Amino acid sequence: ATNIVGKVKWYNSTKNAGFIEQDNGGKDVFVHKSAVDAAGLHSLEEGQDVIFDLEEKQGKAYAVNLRIK
């Protein structure tokens, strides 16, 4: 899926990971530091509006192509 709108639920820069809550009510999506880095960002803030694509690896959904809304 592409161009999904959501809000950062939480992001821990020590653990280099967090979750994004989908505005469409879907399951929360894992976001890794690699996606944050690829977006040219240093970190994510709780409640921040984002747009992202979903990629599945080994049955788990990940946020990729992250951008700030």
Rank of each mutant, 00 (worst) to 15 (best):
A1T: 13
A1R: 14
A1D: 09
A1C: 12
A1W: 12
A1G: 11
A1S: 11
A1Q: 13
A1F: 12
A1Y: 12
T2P: 05
T2H: 12
T2C: 12
N3W: 06
N3F: 06
N3V: 04
N3P: 04
N3T: 06
N3S: 08
I4D: 01
I4V: 11
I4A: 06
I4E: 03
V5W: 11
V5A: 13
V5K: 15
V5P: 13
V5I: 12
G6I: 03
G6E: 01
G6A: 03
G6F: 02
G6V: 02
G6Y: 02
G6T: 01
G6W: 02
K7W: 08
K7C: 07
K7A: 04
K7P: 00
K7Y: 05
K7R: 13
K7N: 04
V8A: 01
V8N: 01
K9A: 04
K9Q: 02
K9N: 02
K9S: 03
K9R: 10
K9H: 05
K9C: 05
W10M: 05
W10A: 04
Y11K: 02
Y11E: 00
Y11S: 03
Y11V: 09
N12P: 02
N12W: 08
N12Y: 07
N12G: 03
N12L: 08
N12V: 06
N12I: 07
S13Y: 11
S13Q: 11
S13C: 14
S13W: 11
S13R: 13
S13N: 11
T14E: 12
T14P: 05
T14Q: 13
T14C: 14
T14V: 12
T14H: 13
K15Y: 13
K15E: 08
K15H: 10
K15G: 06
K15Q: 10
K15F: 13
K15V: 11
K15W: 14
N16A: 12
N16E: 11
N16I: 04
N16M: 13
N16Y: 10
N16F: 10
N16S: 11
N16K: 15
A17Q: 14
A17N: 08
A17K: 09
A17C: 15
A17H: 15
A17V: 14
A17F: 15
A17E: 10
G18E: 00
G18L: 05
G18S: 01
G18F: 06
G18M: 05
F19W: 14
F19S: 05
F19N: 03
F19M: 12
F19Q: 07
I20Y: 00
I20H: 01
I20K: 00
I20C: 02
E21P: 01
E21H: 11
E21Y: 11
E21W: 11
E21Q: 14
E21G: 11
E21L: 12
E21D: 05
E21A: 15
E21K: 15
E21S: 15
Q22D: 05
Q22P: 15
Q22T: 12
Q22M: 13
Q22N: 07
Q22K: 08
Q22W: 12
Q22S: 09
Q22V: 14
Q22C: 13
D23W: 13
D23N: 14
D23C: 15
D23V: 15
N24Y: 08
N24G: 12
N24S: 10
N24I: 08
N24L: 09
G25Q: 06
G25R: 07
G25W: 06
G25S: 07
G25D: 07
G25E: 06
G25A: 06
G25F: 07
G26I: 06
G26L: 09
G26P: 05
G26W: 07
G26T: 07
G26S: 08
K27M: 10
K27R: 12
K27N: 10
K27E: 10
D28E: 08
D28K: 09
V29M: 02
V29P: 01
V29F: 05
V29T: 04
V29A: 04
V29L: 03
F30C: 06
F30H: 05
F30E: 05
V31G: 01
V31N: 00
V31I: 10
V31W: 02
V31P: 00
V31C: 02
V31L: 07
V31T: 02
H32K: 08
H32F: 08
H32P: 07
H32R: 07
H32S: 11
K33G: 11
K33D: 02
K33R: 11
K33P: 06
K33F: 09
K33W: 10
K33L: 05
K33H: 08
K33Q: 10
S34R: 11
S34N: 10
S34A: 10
S34Q: 09
S34G: 08
S34I: 08
S34H: 09
S34F: 10
S34W: 11
S34D: 09
S34V: 08
S34T: 12
S34M: 10
A35H: 05
A35R: 03
A35I: 07
A35L: 03
A35V: 09
A35P: 01
A35T: 09
V36M: 09
V36N: 02
V36I: 11
V36Q: 02
V36G: 01
V36P: 01
V36S: 02
D37G: 07
D37N: 13
D37S: 12
D37T: 14
D37K: 14
D37L: 15
A38F: 07
A38V: 07
A38W: 06
A38D: 08
A38G: 06
A39C: 04
A39G: 05
A39T: 05
A39W: 03
A39N: 03
G40N: 08
G40P: 02
G40W: 05
G40C: 09
G40V: 03
G40F: 06
G40Y: 05
L41W: 11
L41F: 10
L41G: 03
L41K: 04
L41T: 03
H42S: 13
H42L: 13
H42N: 12
H42T: 13
H42Q: 12
H42W: 11
H42K: 13
S43K: 12
S43L: 10
S43V: 11
S43W: 12
S43D: 11
S43A: 11
S43I: 11
L44D: 00
L44Y: 01
L44C: 02
L44S: 01
L44T: 01
E45A: 12
E45N: 11
E45M: 13
E45K: 14
E45V: 14
E45P: 07
E45H: 15
E45I: 14
E45D: 10
E45G: 08
E46H: 14
E46M: 14
E46I: 15
E46R: 15
E46S: 15
G47K: 05
G47D: 04
G47W: 04
G47T: 03
Q48L: 10
Q48G: 04
Q48S: 08
Q48C: 08
Q48K: 05
Q48D: 09
Q48A: 09
Q48Y: 06
Q48F: 06
Q48R: 05
Q48E: 08
D49G: 14
D49I: 15
D49M: 15
D49V: 15
D49P: 14
D49N: 12
D49C: 15
V50W: 01
V50L: 11
V50F: 03
V50A: 02
V50Y: 04
I51S: 04
I51R: 04
I51H: 04
I51D: 02
I51P: 00
I51N: 03
I51L: 10
I51F: 07
F52I: 03
F52E: 00
F52W: 01
F52K: 00
F52G: 01
F52H: 00
F52C: 01
F52Q: 00
F52V: 02
F52M: 02
F52A: 01
F52L: 02
F52S: 00
D53Q: 04
D53H: 03
D53W: 04
D53K: 02
D53L: 02
L54K: 07
L54W: 05
L54Q: 04
L54D: 00
E55A: 12
E55S: 09
E55D: 07
E55Q: 11
E55G: 06
E55F: 14
E55V: 14
E56R: 13
E56T: 13
E56S: 10
E56P: 03
E56Y: 15
E56G: 06
E56F: 15
K57T: 10
K57Y: 13
K57V: 11
K57M: 10
K57G: 08
Q58M: 13
Q58I: 07
Q58A: 13
G59T: 04
G59F: 05
G59E: 05
G59H: 05
G59A: 04
G59L: 04
K60A: 07
K60N: 08
K60I: 09
K60G: 06
K60Q: 09
K60Y: 11
K60M: 10
K60W: 11
K60H: 09
A61L: 14
A61W: 14
A61F: 15
A61R: 14
Y62P: 02
Y62L: 06
Y62V: 07
Y62F: 11
Y62A: 06
Y62I: 07
A63Y: 01
A63K: 01
A63H: 01
A63Q: 01
A63M: 02
A63C: 03
A63P: 02
V64R: 05
V64F: 05
V64W: 07
V64C: 06
V64Q: 04
V64A: 06
V64K: 08
N65C: 05
N65P: 00
N65H: 08
N65E: 02
N65S: 04
N65T: 03
N65L: 02
N65G: 03
L66K: 00
L66N: 00
L66V: 08
L66T: 00
L66A: 00
L66P: 00
L66S: 00
R67G: 02
R67W: 04
R67C: 04
R67A: 03
R67N: 03
I68V: 12
I68S: 06
I68T: 09
K69A: 11
K69S: 11
K69D: 09
K69E: 09
K69Q: 12
K69F: 13
K69G: 11
K69Y: 12
K69W: 11
